[in-house]
Design a protein around this nucleic acid. Structure first.
Lengths: 214, 214
DNA sequence: GAATTAATTTGTCATTCGATAAATAAGGCC
DNA sequence: GGCCTTATTTATCGAATGACAAATTAATTC
């Protein structure tokens, strides 16, 4: 009557399948419980015994590294960078579309929590990720803005990059409030993005014209 | 010759002093190592034995609660709210001064890390803190903005509050990048704040006029 | 300076942790 | 259907954890 684990019909997976299953579920597990949670808890969630983990990963830390890769590296979409450089459209449209598709990827509980957990652990993968954002997103945005405004191309100043970071961080923090603290209002995401992008673009116009060297 | 702990001249503190010392150093310790770090590690840092902690706090979780209070509750300055309501000055000046003094308090490694650690733990103190920010900071800002623009007083709309959150979050995230990821540029804090506040105010002007019901 | 109080340490217990070695069993191959 | 490979489990180790009880010692009181 009870369909408890009366029959320990343990399913046997190929090495590759099992490994993939481990990583996929480890993302959920560590996102929920943090990286300090036990390998036994993870094994329970996986439906296997704890030592089996050590047939696939030499240590807990190695497993965690693979989680980082699966979340940060594999979910990055190179076409985002193309989108931002498409000069057939006004930059403000590109920014809106970019932040909508970008947040489609990163605004989920897993991504956000893994990002914050790993940041607090001090692993350098976060620093590398932020360099990626700066070089592949923010600096191209500033380059496109100068082009659209008819200004000569030149490397972005520090304070311009920081200004772009404030918009980016403001949008990011909306996701944190939504997914970590679960305390956003009912405003739709695309509306928040539209307002943030509009304010950024207007502010940047003033800023770039003012900061212009003689 | 060696001034090692040859003489275990253990200093004896009064109950009150010891307790205060514990909390002060526990803030540093947990900010550095996270709340999952051991009470033995904390005791080592305090220069006492681990069971002594349990003479002052019934459990580890009780000690952590006191750390929250010391960081969140006790560092809030009610005069911030007065500053924002001082109509003898332009709102943009008040915002600049507010965010400069506010970030003087929260932009330190302790505050930031404790905030992020506790947020991921899911304790409700973060949610309460964000309610505080909304009610005591953001809603007053929107009220002041309407007054300065000569618009009738009315409760802020959700999307207006979210717009204020984006500025607030953008500035906050600057602190995170600086103190958690240690990867900000050399731009001075007050410059970043000035740009963020200016863009917010300009955007808000447009937004409030546009959103105005007939 | 002896007696008393209370701050602090020593000693310890039951769990839980990451990790390893050895035993077991499921599935593929001929 | 028996053999062989290997995926998986059982059993276990040593270290670390939160917490408690009892012993010790520094400071206070008279």
């Amino acid at each position: 009557m009870i369909d408890s684990d009366d029959k320990p019909k343990r399913k046997r997976l190929s090495s590759g399948e099992r490994r993939e299953d481990f990583i996929t579920k480890a993302i959920d597990f560590f996102a929920d419980e943090g990286f300090e949670s036990s390998t036994r808890g993870l094994a329970r969630k996986l439906g296997v015994t704890q030592p089996l983990l050590y047939r696939y990963f030499p240590s807990k830390e190695d497993l965690i590294s693979e989680v980082y890769d699966a979340v940060y590296v594999n979910r990055w979409r190179p076409e985002w960078e193309d989108l931002l450089r498409d000069r057939s459209r006004p930059l403000i449209d590109r920014l809106n579309e970019f932040y909508n598709v970008y947040t489609d990827v990163i605004f989920n509980r897993q991504w956000m929590r893994i990002y914050l957990f790993s940041g607090l652990k001090g692993v350098d993968i976060n620093r590398r990720y932020m360099q990626l954002v700066r070089q592949r997103i923010l600096e191209p945005i500033l380059k496109e803005a100068r082009a659209e405004m008819g200004l000569p191309d030149q490397p972005a100043k520090d304070c311009e990059i920081e200004f772009a970071w404030v918009m980016h961080g403001g949008i990011f923090y909306y996701g944190v409030r939504d997914l970590i603290y679960e305390s956003t209002l009912e405003t739709q995401k695309h509306r928040v993005i539209a307002d943030a992008v509009a304010a950024f673009m207007a502010g940047l116009h003033i800023k770039l014209h003012r900061d212009q060297p003689t």
